[in-house]
Design a protein around this nucleic acid. Structure first.
Lengths: 130, 130
DNA sequence: TATCTGTTATATTCGTAATATAACAGTTAA
DNA sequence: TTAACTGTTATATTACGAATATAACAGATA
């Protein structure tokens, strides 16, 4: 899977990495059980530090997206993620709220806004690869 | 409008402030042209520093949500915000993407996800106050 | 005149991001 | 048995942003 870092972004590199791996899992670009590059290999490939990659992997591990074996490396979680529960829904709403508010301020119609959300959702679920 | 700061949150105080004011404008709790508390008054009220409030106001001003007059204080933008254009849609999508991806990983159904978005949207547009 | 407004300046403290080296403990392949 | 690989841990440095603290300025207002 192709990963690209925006060094001008205000989003920390390890967060960009984390997000892109999650997005890869959602789109199917990363299959369950698939091995991820070693922290050193990915760091060298992206031209960043080993610890920055390690930080991303550690976060992904703590949230259950990947498994890390001390000598075998990291793999995408082989079994399905725990389903969305109320706790997740709560966090999701809290995180989306500010963006929804700004859209409302800019007078996006409800259908218009929901179309954006729907297209975004289908970017991951349609075409189970890429 | 009631503003409450979570000091345990990892979200910076000035961002929390910024978001809550935007949410107030979206919900109608803050009316166009309505005066905002002075930076000193709000800082004292929340028990935070003057400059933290000022930072939030400056960001809101730069994005057009409020107007700041050097001696009269800050007011909510009296006229409507510029409507959502393609640039805004692009930013919106980029910011929502990681959250949508995680929802997909947790196997939220499309309708389920869109219901969350719809309810969130209507929290602001239904009941034009509070 | 005294008080309010946002603004600017300077400084400090604290935490995080990112980097750089180095080493360790196992696994695996030559 | 080496040599090369894996994640992990430790230490240190640089840089930047968040938040605070004081202080002062300029203009409006009561």
């Amino acid at each position: 899977m192709l990963i690209r870092i925006d060094y001008q972004s205000e989003v920390p590199i390890y967060v960009q990495l984390t997000n892109q791996i999650i997005e890869g899992m959602a789109s199917g670009a990363l299959k369950p059980g698939e091995p991820l590059p070693s922290v050193r290999a990915l760091a060298a490939d992206l031209g960043i530090n080993l610890h920055t990659v390690n930080k991303a992997y550690t976060h992904l591990k703590q949230e259950g997206f990947i498994q890390v074996h001390r000598q075998r490396g990291a793999i995408v979680r082989p079994d399905p993620m725990p389903p969305a529960d109320d706790a997740f829904r709560g966090r999701l709403e809290a995180q989306l709220r500010p963006f929804v508010a700004e859209a409302v301020c800019r007078r996006m119609e409800e259908d218009d806004f929901l179309d954006v959300c729907r297209r975004l959702y289908r970017q991951f679920t349609r075409k189970e690869e890429s």
